[in-house]
Each structure stands twice: as structure tokens, then as C-alpha cells.
Design a protein around this nucleic acid. Structure first.
Lengths: 116, 116
DNA sequence: TCGGGAATTGAAGAAGGCTTCAACTTGTGG
DNA sequence: CCACAAGTTGAAGCCTTCTTCAATTCCCGA
């Protein structure tokens, strides 16, 4: 067992998160279980496209689905995703601020260049 | 400015993390700045392959590089990556445990099936 | 200034992921 | 039982990413 190196499992985990629809689904499910119909309405995505992304999340084990009558309800598989997304948002904010700073520098540089 | 939806920026961020070598580089850099030579030794990767992955990290802004004499030194761009990796590890542990549990269930099911 | 080591870059081919379409499964109501 | 709605699945085509090779840049010492 555990034949996959840990850093590879981590990489696969992050790759699993690396899609806009999947991120939004995880965010939505933090409010509680939701039927596919609701996700579909919130995300404005094609049913089959959403289904594909839900399948990716399901395979990873981070969400589970349950049939209820004629609809299917998804929920987080207990995992505490909030912490992760919070940490990501913190770093992301830093990075975007940094890029803003970089842009300022570039503008400066260009202003300088015009004078040369 | 900020024309990219936030959930898309998040997705790109996670995709940036989604590679074994990039994960390991970030982990190594948490100990402090490191010359490429050291990373190369620790990772057992081809120089040009590592360079490509370092370029991805650099473009995202999560690391910075500085030339020191004939070598190049990389370091985290201030971002607190530790929190993120910690949160990821927590969830990952849960998920792997879950898969272990699933395996147990499957074994159970198979045992049951033999009796039918 | 020439040679050599360190690291990066660009490009090509292979591999993997995404979107979309059509086909299918499952449940519900007539 | 039939038809329809809700989701899922498989496959095809496309686009992105990964690996690798060769070429290049930068710096140091002879």
C-alpha cells in the first residue's frame, strides 16, 4: 500500500483543485449539501460538463453523491476544505498584490525608457 | 484591472501547484533560500526540466530568483506557503484514509459476494 | 579572450485534460 | 407500459502541459 510518493499525491490533489468549476463547486458545497440542479443554476455550465467535473471531484474522494428520488445531491466528504481555501486566498492576495507592484514598476520603467 | 474572476485565479494558482517537482521545490525552499545546484541534487531531475518548473513558479510570483556569482539562488517570495501545505496535507490524509476505508469495504463486499 | 560550468530558453513530440455530442441509466408521472 | 426529466458516461477533437534536446547566456578562472 501507499506506493505513490507523498509529493506526487499532493501534486495530484492540487491538480484536482485546478479548475474553475471544481473550485466553485467546493465553495458552494461549503454551505451544505446541494442537488446538481442548484449547482447547475449557480454555475451556468453545461450539464454534461458539470457532470464531468463532479466525477473528477468524486474520484478524488473530496465529495460524495447520493441519489434522492429523481435528483442527485452532492456534499463535501467531511473534509475541511475551508482552511485550505482560506490559506490559498491569503497567498493569492499576496501574489496579486505583488503583480500589481510589478506592473507599477513596469510603468515606471517605461516612463524612464521614453526619456532615453 | 482584476479582469480575471477570482475563482479562475484560484484555479490557476492550484494548477501551478499541481506538479511533483514544483511541490518539492516549495517544500525545500521553506527551509530557506537555495541555489539551483542544491535543488538539482535533492530532486534528481534533469537540469532543464527543473529549470522549466522553476520558470513556472517564477511566473506565478511565488518564488524569486537572484543571481549570485555563477549560481542562481531561489527563495519563496515572502508568501506563507507552510499554512497552505499543512491544510493540504490534512485533507489529503483524510482522503487517503477514506480510500483505505473504501478498500476495506470493497474487500467486505467481495467476501459477501462469494457467499451469494 | 578563450574555455568550461551553471542555468535558462525555444522548439518538437508525446501525453493528459477539457468541452461537446450522442447515447444511456434511473426514477416519476400519465 | 410509455414518455419525459435528471444526471451520467464514452468517445472525438482540440488545446495545454510535460519532457527532452540542442542552442544560448552569463560568469569565472586560466
Amino acid at each position: 500500500m501507499q506506493r505513490v510518493p507523498l509529493y506526487q499525491a499532493k501534486a495530484e490533489f492540487f491538480r484536482m483543485l485546478g479548475h474553475p468549476v471544481r473550485i466553485r463547486v467546493l465553495e458552494l458545497l461549503q454551505e451544505g449539501p446541494k442537488p446538481v440542479r442548484d449547482l447547475l443554476a449557480d454555475l451556468e455550465a453545461e450539464p454534461s460538463s458539470l457532470s464531468q467535473q463532479l466525477a473528477v471531484l468524486r474520484r478524488s474522494g473530496i465529495v460524495v453523491s447520493a441519489r434522492e428520488g429523481s435528483t442527485v445531491v452532492y456534499s463535501l466528504a467531511g473534509a475541511d476544505v475551508a482552511d485550505l481555501l482560506r490559506a490559498a486566498r491569503r497567498i493569492l492576495t499576496e501574489l496579486l498584490a505583488g503583480q500589481q507592484g510589478l506592473l507599477d514598476e513596469l510603468r515606471e520603467a517605461e516612463r524612464g525608457a521614453r526619456l532615453m
